[in-house]
Structure formats: structure tokens, C-alpha cells
Amino acid sequence: MTASDVLDAGTPSATRALGDLPKNRRARIVAIHTSDDALEATLREIGFAEGDEVEILHYGPLGRKPLCVRLNETLVALRPTEAAAIRVETIA
């Protein structure tokens, strides 16, 4: 149905939601899509874009929420629910 699903099928390194990335594992954003247009715009305006490098650096103290993510040279805090809109693939 979406670009990332196609990628899922076609590439050996499957994509996953940003929230499911192991800590300190570098990854590249392959797609940002959600049914919530406002959320997608918010994520893009704060800087998330296809091709950008991300990495989870820290988790919040309760229930591993929220996430502290390195986005290129910036740090962004967001919750797993919103991070689910960002599909990533790990970088070797």
C-alpha cells in the first residue's frame, strides 16, 4: 500500500518504525507517512525527512517513554506513538 511496504518486500534490510529501533543503533529514514496530516507536517517542520540519519539515545524513565532521538545534528524528544509514523532502516 505504501512506499515502505514495497521496500519491506524488496530489500533484505527490512524497515521498521523509529520507535522499534534498538538504542544507539544508527538508521536512515526511508518514509514518513501517517493518516494524520498535521502530525506529518509537524514531524517534517521540526526536521524529519527521508534520507536523514536518526538514532535513539535515551528513553524516558517511565515505560521507556518518551524517546530522545538524534536527528542529524539535532536532538528531538517525541513519543513512540508519533515515532511510529517514521519508517527507518538501519545503517551497517
Binding site: 502530525l39 521540526i46 539535532t74 536532538l75 508519533e82
Partner: peptide, 8 residues
């Protein structure tokens, strides 16, 4: 949702 930049 919380989406917030953490400054250096």
C-alpha cells in the same frame, strides 16, 4: 503529542 527539540 510531545514533539520537542532538545537544545545543546
Amino acid at each position: 503529542a510531545l514533539i520537542m527539540e532538545l537544545p545543546t
